[in-house]
Design a protein around this nucleic acid. Structure first.
Lengths: 343, 343
DNA sequence: TTGTATGCGTTATCAC
DNA sequence: GTGATAACGCATACAA
């Protein structure tokens, strides 16, 4: 029992084992290569002392020396969005195996934080970063890459910046969803779109239009309403699509750009006296927990956040292990259609 | 523009400013105390060079020297439980202001991970830890404290271990909830309990009993059913309480130990032909997102996870700043009754 | 008021 | 094979 909280160092181990500090370092790091060979007997003795003393390397000293912090930062727009905890879990599962710890930066939907967190990452000297950022400029990201920090982006926004990206197959998923509706006979399908100045809003709208075109259904701009990804305005928008005066010719299906809007739409429709899915089929996007509980349960799309996190971490680790610089890569993670009762 | 990614050091700043390295260090750290005073003129010049060169301290070197990593670890049982992201957000808000970064460890409900993460924290030499752990033994925690790592626990489990704890006012909240039911005339209130070997399960059951006693309602053990905090068995348990054969004298209210069980109970009751809240009032605990969406919306209890995270981080920072050891403290965070339509 | 010197614990380069 | 020894970048007691 050592006096005080004196954590044993390589020095202590070396003394106890009767070898030099360098030998301990070699044994610890399994430095079998090079012109240095440690005898099996010595190796064992050192390891035994390491055990006995409970020696643990000092990460700070190691980092100072190797310029590797064994730290990965994950920056997300909104930690309370259930997508991100899952993504983080996926990333952590991969990182943990390679002895990396995960630093979480939650922007809480405040754009200014993205930049200030970039500064924090720089200061913390993380080895790599998984970024989900909507407001970062190319120069912010290049701050990271120039500092030798590897960057992987999640979502298409960062693609133009020349970093690895992991993107969910949103287009394909919307296509599949629309096909499902069309197969069930729907021809008049409305869309509750997200803000067209956000990438997801734009992508989902485009994919919606494309799916209609593929099915030979003429584009009808009057079936599209623009919302804000939250509950606000949904009641009005749905009202304008399904006002009772239009009971004659109304859309028979509604595709909302996310589940929050879809759920609010279902409630609004119920208030207006429409049956879902009998009168109107409704589907969303994201597969949030509420989607399973709403009545009727919501047909939607699951992005497999965990897989996205895993792949992002894998790309990052590959880069961290790579000798030479790698070209920017793009990985697409397929979404999964979740068929429930609402459509 | 420096060649390569050579990050400027204090040495560079000193050379550029025509002073010694020590002066730079003093200026950076605002060492106004002690017997060292830096002239305002020098100070300004150094700061100017710092700006110009974009100097940022090397955290690893600093940590090696100061034995402070400026890192706080947060360990949670299950990151996909919406309670924890909120708690982390609260902790981060506080930590960020004091220049601490947050390391997240998600146990994914695997008890074994708790101990392995303790090892990770030890190795990472974090300054402090916020623990939400159900399976940690006293010796695991003392591993941390003996290493000089400050520990704050969330939930009552860690109280016996002599560390600071932040606990939600569950008892008071259950009492309030029960009072609400009793005030509305309910006398036969059933309880869907959690596993009695878990602290929350036990606490909520005890508080339920106590509330009945306070109201002078005789204890009726036949009104209590033990579940598992998830959907499993809920249908059977509710069935046994509200089988149609008992339509005569049935409980008029049901308090479930958490929202997941409460929501499943509502659905089961609907299937059995009971109206909520007309025939049976139902309430839960936790205020998960689904609680707002289920029909009827669920009356429940919100634990204010963000406040819990904030307070935990505050306690931690106080300890980290303290000169002398502090006695173990306990902070209770009041829960908030969320009255909706189900009760 | 400023500069010098030392050590924090590792890794890695050399001679031996 | 092994053992000194020099960085890594910073903070600080102490000398000037």
């Amino acid at each position: 029992m050592s006096s005080e909280s004196h954590r044993p160092t390589q020095e202590d181990v070396a003394r106890e084992a009767g070898v030099s500090r360098a030998v301990v370092s070699y044994v610890i790091n399994g430095r079998s290569g090079g012109n240095v060979r440690i005898s099996e007997k010595t190796r064992r003795r050192v390891l035994e002392v390491v055990q006995r003393l409970g020696y643990q390397p000092n990460v700070n000293a190691r980092s100072l020396r190797t310029r590797r912090s064994q730290l990965i930062a994950v920056m997300v727009p909104d930690l309370t969005n259930p997508f991100y905890p899952l993504m983080i879990r996926g990333a952590q599962a991969v990182a943990q195996r390679a002895a990396y710890d995960i630093l979480v930066y939650d922007c809480d939907d405040q754009p200014a934080r993205e930049r200030s967190f970039v500064q924090a990452m720089l200061g913390r000297m993380v080895d790599g970063v998984i970024l989900v950022a909507f407001h970062l400029k190319a120069e912010d990201v290049s701050l990271l890459t120039r500092a030798g920090i590897e960057v992987v982006g999640v979502g298409g926004e960062l693609r133009p910046l020349g970093v690895d990206v992991v993107v969910p197959g949103e287009r394909e998923a919307v296509r599949e969803l629309m096909r499902h509706l069309i197969d069930r006979g729907h021809r008049s399908i409305a869309h509750l779109a997200g803000p067209p100045d956000t990438p997801p809003g734009r992508v989902r709208l485009e994919a919606y239009r494309q799916a209609l075109a593929e099915a030979g259904i003429p584009d009808d701009e009057s079936l599209v309403r623009y919302g804000t990804f939250d509950r606000e305005h949904v009641a009005d928008l749905v009202g304008s699509l399904f006002s009772s005066s239009r009971h004659g010719a109304h859309p028979t299906a509604l595709f909302a750009a996310n589940d929050v809007m879809a759920i609010e739409a279902i409630r609004t429709l119920a208030r207006l006296g429409w049956q879902v899915p009998a009168d109107v089929a409704v589907c969303g996007f994201d597969n949030i927990p509420e989607a399973e509980v709403v009545m009727p349960p919501l047909t939607t799309v699951d992005q497999d956040a965990e897989a996205i996190g895993r792949r992002a971490a894998e790309l990052l680790l590959e880069r961290l292990r790579a000798e030479a610089p790698l070209p920017p890569r793009e990985v697409k993670i397929a979404c999964r259609l979740v068929l429930r009762e609402s459509a």
